[in-house]
Design a protein around this nucleic acid. Structure first.
Length: 442
RNA sequence: GUGGGUAUAGUCAAGUGGUUAAGACACAUGGUUGUGGUCCAUGCAUGCGAGGGUUCGAAUCCCUUUACCCACCCCA
């Protein structure tokens, strides 16, 4: 069945740009063995924080119908307008690699009628996301997020719970320099009036605005507030702030949130310039920001979205959640000098001398593993010296040597690689010896 | 999409027109036949991101191109 995709494939294969064969696509990264231990540590801690707070894991598809993101994130947002990996599949459906996590989880919440479960429904996830952007420090085309969502609560304790979880997780890693910025961006009943007030304020200065802000003036004037151009920054001085235009409901909600954060001893500052770029946000918006990782300083960002579920065709159920960038978090930990423990080497390396011992060594290593001891063994036909060198390189705690003498005596030298001490241990007792010594250390 | 920067071995790099492209780390083998982390020896870029050009001669000068990094924008 010839089609446009197959033709494209043939063209690509026939082309001479074979350098690309051994090059990961722009903005993507391999996570190598040297890094995976750090990832596992973060995952373990995050899962722990979520479980302690009563969150359960959800896994959703990497791609969704394009309409989900267009409707959920907003077809005016930059993410939807120019950053999505969208393509037509062979069944002529337009699908998109997820650029963020909330829309997919919200869709799953609706589709699986999770609103019928005891509310609120509290979910966590770890996902890869995809956005077509120019890569830079802390920004990739494929990146990873931890995220949580709470569905079904209008109460600000839910917002405090979400912020509190992020705060506990980040602080638990030893991060203290992160600043938590909180804002309220209002709701559909009060935001329009603020928007108008802001436009009225900016109108006489319109011609002085930078080019991008001229566009923002119509599309999303709130964004002008955090423009980094010094000119705009000056012009915006004295502009009305959302806080002063909140409706009664939003105002009291924000006051409550502040009191709840204080009750939890969570340090924060109100930052009226925070504007989330995803259209679904209402009321609470927050960010954990660092100045240690370059221009993309937001490690964790989130907020409330009271109308997303209804917008997607579900019941009128509110939500609140966050996304936390794992690559940015790792970068921050590195730049802050916080070390995450590396994966330890094997308990024992089983070295052999001679063909007979080579057979026996494999049996010994297999038995050790079955006994719960991690054991490595030469598979590169090295000499005894090479085997010891290798054992040292991989950080083995002990080296066990088996040769003709040991085959006949049944007793083998077990060397502690750190101290150099060597003692004879019966081959049958190796596992017991090592397990015993490990327990003694705690 | 717009700017700026950088490209020499697995890694960090010296080298700005002239004999075989420093050095360090890493890696491999060996230092008499059963022991690592120190030390010593040896090996490891016909090649300087790629493609053209100038020149008797180019990693070094010129043109084109690609990749990566950083910033804008946007956001995790």
């Amino acid at each position: 069945m010839p089609n446009v995709f197959v033709e494209e494939l043939c063209r690509i294969v026939a082309s001479e740009e074979d350098i690309m064969l051994t090059k990961a696509p722009k903005g993507t990264k391999d996570i190598l063995p040297a890094d995976t231990a750090r990832w596992r540590r973060l995952e373990r801690d995050f899962v722990g924080a979520c479980r302690k707070a009563g969150f359960e894991e959800i896994r959703t598809p990497v791609f969704e119908h394009t309409e989900l993101f267009a409707r959920g994130i907003g077809d005016a947002s930059d993410v939807v307008r120019k950053q999505m990996y969208t393509f037509e599949d062979l069944g002529h459906r337009s699908v998109t690699l997820r650029p963020e996590g909330t829309a997919g989880v919200a869709r799953a919440f609706i589709e699986n009628k999770m609103y019928a479960e005891p509310l609120p429904v509290k979910l966590w996830y770890e996902i890869s996301c995809f956005r077509y952007e120019r890569p830079q420090s802390g920004r990739f085309r494929e990146f990873h997020q931890f995220g949580i969502e709470v569905f079904g609560s209008h109460d600000m304790t839910a917002d405090a719970e979400v912020i509190g979880l992020a705060d506990a997780f980040l602080r638990g890693l030893g991060l203290t320099e992160l600043s938590l910025r909180v804002n309220s961006i209002g709701c559909p009943s009060c935001r329009p009036s603020y928007r108008e007030a802001l436009k009225v304020f900016l109108e006489p200065r319109y011609t002085e605005l930078c080019d991008t802000c001229k566009l923002r003036y119509e599309r999303n004037p709130l964004r002008i507030l955090d423009c980094k151009s010094s000119v705009c920054h000056e012009l915006v001085h004295g502009a009305p702030v959302m806080m002063d235009y909140l409706c009664e409901e939003c105002r009291s909600a924000f006051t409550q949130l502040e009191s709840y954060l204080t009750a939890r001893s969570i340090a924060y500052e109100v930052d009226t310039s925070i504007v989330r770029g995803l259209d679904y946000y209402t009321k609470t918006a927050f960010e954990f920001v660092s100045d240690m990782i370059g221009a993309q300083g937001t490690v964790c960002g989130g907020g409330r979205y009271d109308h997303l579920i209804a917008e997607l065709g579900g019941p009128d159920v509110p939500g609140v959640g966050f996304g936390l960038g794992i690559e940015r978090l790792l970068l921050l930990l590195e730049n802050t000098g916080i070390e995450l423990p590396a994966e330890p080497g094997p308990d024992v390396f089983v070295a052999y001398i001679g063909d007979g011992a080579k057979l026996r060594a494999q049996a010994v290593a297999t038995d050790l593993r079955a006994s719960g001891v991690s054991a490595d063994i030469d598979t590169a036909a090295r000499g005894i010296k090479g085997q010891f060198k290798y054992a040292d390189r991989i950080g083995a705690r002990y080296a066990l040597t088996i040769g003709d003498n040991e085959l006949s005596s049944g007793v083998a030298p077990l060397k502690d690689m750190a101290t150099g001490d060597e003692r004879k241990v019966p081959l049958a007792d190796i596992a017991k010896f090592i397990v015993g010594n490990s327990e003694g250390e705690g």
